[in-house]
Each structure stands twice: as structure tokens, then as C-alpha cells.
């Protein structure tokens, strides 16, 4: 098990190097450069040249890449050309926001998705099954930004229950020891703050969690259906075991394997893919940060952010593989 994890971690090195080379090339192929992005329509030829010299962009690309990797190894992701802050510092602030939102969204997806899928399977082809199919289809096909606008319209503008933007009320001061605002509020025993942070989380979490909810529900349904037809389930029932025990111990546990896979992959995806939700809710996380970086051609931020995403997705996949072993002892991780 340990050897497996170590080997997988070592495999990360060539993967990340490959990603960084691709990134480095792609980012430099973007139209416009940071010099022009900084200067806009006021750019004169001399000032563009001066900035390019200053940023080292006039040197051969392999020299630039070499310098980049050298810094990377030392944990230096560069400096944002826009905010003039170290990229790593910004990452430390943005990532917790994204994690908080992704977890809230996944919690929403799991809490509703698994029971929905389970009930649909139990009532196979019944009303509940069809209803859950219907809900899932809508969940998957509804554009996130539209759902977000709709949710805000109903719950914020019409009903006035929930805020439309941000992580916390801007007139409220809360301390940020960790930058996970919910955790921060709990740690500082700011209970009003906890409520406020939760209120800010609800709508973005629903908007972001709808697609994973639909996917989790469909996968759970399929997995449970498979298991329900297994001999050991019939045997368990035949020997007179309490149906709820059968469901819990025999059906759910065995059906969970694909569900966990999907949850893991979806979480990984949410940690990187919340651009739309973050933008619409002005959520200061990775997604809106990357979008801004692309808008301002902030090379260091684009590279640092995407490299971090690559690392994240690889680690999530690894975590999923490891959890297989826990859920199903038949799987050997020796290879």
C-alpha cells in the first residue's frame, strides 16, 4: 500500500513537468502579451519593449522555461503582474475559498444524490425512479450560470433571504486564521459569523452542486440496481435479515464503489472547474482568479494556477484509488 502510494507520487514528477512545458508553450501562444495587457491602447513600441525586457520576455523561450523551473523547484511560482503579489500568497488565499465551495457543493450533491439514487433503484421504473431521472436530466442540462441567476433572482432579489455575492457580509469583520471562512468563524467562536458564512454558501453550493447531484444520483441508482440482483442479497433477505440491515450492510456498501469513484472525480473537477459559479457569485476563489489572470494576461498566475490544478487532479485520482482498497479488500494496490 505504502509502496503503491510512493510510486504514484513519483509518477507525478514527469506528469507535472510535461504539464508545465505544455503550459509554458500555450500561454506564450496566447494573442497579446503581458506588456500590451498592462499598457492597453496606450502602449507605445518603446514602452512595450521596455516591459518585455524587464519581464525577460525577449529572451529565448527555453531560457525563460529553465528559469521558471528553477524557481518552481524552490517553491517560487513567480509574481503576479497585476496585483504585484507573489502567486503562492494569492494561491493560499484563493484555494481555501474554492475548497469551501466545492465541499459545500459536494455535500449538497451527496446528501441528496445518494438517497435519491437509492430510492430510485428501490422503486425501479416506478414514479420515484422516473422523477429522479427527470430531475437528473434537468440538473445535468441546466446551464450553471443560468441556474445561478435564477436562484439569486428567487432567493435573494424576490424573497430577500440570501445574499447574491461574496463569502461573507462586507460589513462584518471576521478573523482569517485559515482563510476557510466557516472554519475561521467557528475557531473564533463567532457564531453570527458562522450563520452569515453559511448563508453566503447556500446558493453557490446549490448552483455548483446540481450537476454532481445528478451524476451521483444516476450512478448510485445503477450501482444499487446491480447489487440488488446479486445472489448474496437474495440470500440475505431469504435468511430473514432485517431489510434495513440488508440495504445498509450488503447493498449500500457494495454499491458504493463506483459512487465513491464518481464523488472523487467530481470533487477534483469542482476544485478546478468552478469558474462560472465563482464569477456569477463573485466568489474570490481559483476560478475567478484564473479568469482574471487570463483577462490580464498574467502569465505567472495562469501557469501557477494550472500547474496547481494538475497536481490537485492527480492527487484526487490517487485518493480515489486508495479509497477503493478500503471499500473493497479484493482490490490489490501492489501494482
Amino acid at each position: 500500500m505504502l509502496r503503491f502510494v510512493v510510486r504514484r507520487l513519483l509518477q507525478l514528477i514527469p506528469i507535472l513537468l510535461g504539464v508545465s512545458i505544455l503550459l509554458f508553450a500555450f500561454v506564450r501562444a496566447l494573442p497579446g502579451g503581458p506588456a500590451i495587457a498592462l499598457l492597453g491602447e496606450r502602449a507605445t513600441e518603446e514602452s512595450v519593449e521596455r516591459i518585455e525586457t524587464e519581464l525577460g520576455l525577449d529572451q529565448p523561450i527555453y531560457v525563460q522555461y529553465g528559469r521558471y523551473v528553477r524557481n518552481l523547484v524552490q517553491g517560487d511560482l513567480g509574481t503576479s503582474t497585476r496585483s504585484r503579489q507573489p502567486v503562492l500568497e494569492e494561491l493560499k488565499q484563493k484555494f481555501p475559498a474554492t475548497v469551501e465551495l466545492a465541499f459545500a457543493a459536494m455535500l449538497f450533491a451527496i446528501i441528496l444524490g445518494i438517497p435519491l439514487g437509492f430510492l430510485a433503484a428501490k422503486r425501479y421504473l416506478g414514479f420515484l425512479d422516473n422523477a429522479s431521472l427527470f430531475v437528473s436530466l434537468i440538473g445535468i442540462s441546466f446551464p450553471v450560470f443560468f441556474l445561478a441567476l435564477l436562484l439569486k433572482y428567487v432567493f435573494a432579489i424576490k424573497l430577500g433571504w440570501l445574499p447574491t455575492v461574496g463569502r461573507v457580509d462586507v460589513t462584518r469583520s471576521i478573523e482569517h486564521p485559515t482563510n476557510f471562512y466557516l472554519l475561521d468563524a467557528v475557531l473564533t467562536r463567532d457564531w453570527e459569523g458562522v450563520v452569515d458564512v453559511l448563508k453566503h454558501l447556500v446558493l453557490p453550493a446549490i448552483a455548483l452542486g446540481t450537476i454532481p447531484l445528478a451524476i451521483v444520483a444516476r450512478i448510485t441508482r445503477a450501482a444499487v440496481l446491480d447489487v440488488l440482483n446479486e445472489d448474496y442479497v437474495r440470500t440475505a433477505r431469504a435468511k430473514g435479515l432485517d431489510p434495513s440491515v440488508v440495504d445498509r450492510r450488503h447493498v449500500m456498501r457494495n454499491a458504493m464503489l463506483p459512487v465513491v469513484t464518481v464523488i472523487g472525480l467530481q470533487t477534483g473537477l469542482l476544485l478546478t472547474g468552478a469558474v462560472l459559479t465563482e464569477t456569477v457569485f463573485a466568489w474570490p476563489g481559483m476560478g475567478s482568479w484564473m479568469l482574471e489572470a487570463i483577462r490580464f494576461r498574467d502569465y505567472a498566475v495562469i501557469q501557477g494556477g494550472i500547474l496547481f490544478f494538475a497536481l490537485l487532479v492527480s492527487l484526487t485520482n490517487l485518493a480515489v484509488d486508495v479509497s477503493y482498497a478500503y471499500l473493497n479488500p479484493k482490490i490489490r494496490l501492489s501494482r
Binding site: K152, A156, I157, T164, G166, V170, V280, A282
Partner: peptide, 18 residues
């Protein structure tokens, strides 16, 4: 309060957040 998306700014105004 920075809100990059114009539609989100309008909704925030309508909801009284800004």
C-alpha cells in the same frame, strides 16, 4: 466590493447587497 461579472453586479444591486 469587487464583483467582476456585470450581471452579478446588477443582481447584487437589486438584492440590496450593494
Amino acid at each position: 466590493r469587487p464583483i467582476a461579472d456585470p450581471a452579478a453586479r446588477l443582481q447584487a444591486l437589486q438584492a440590496g447587497d450593494i
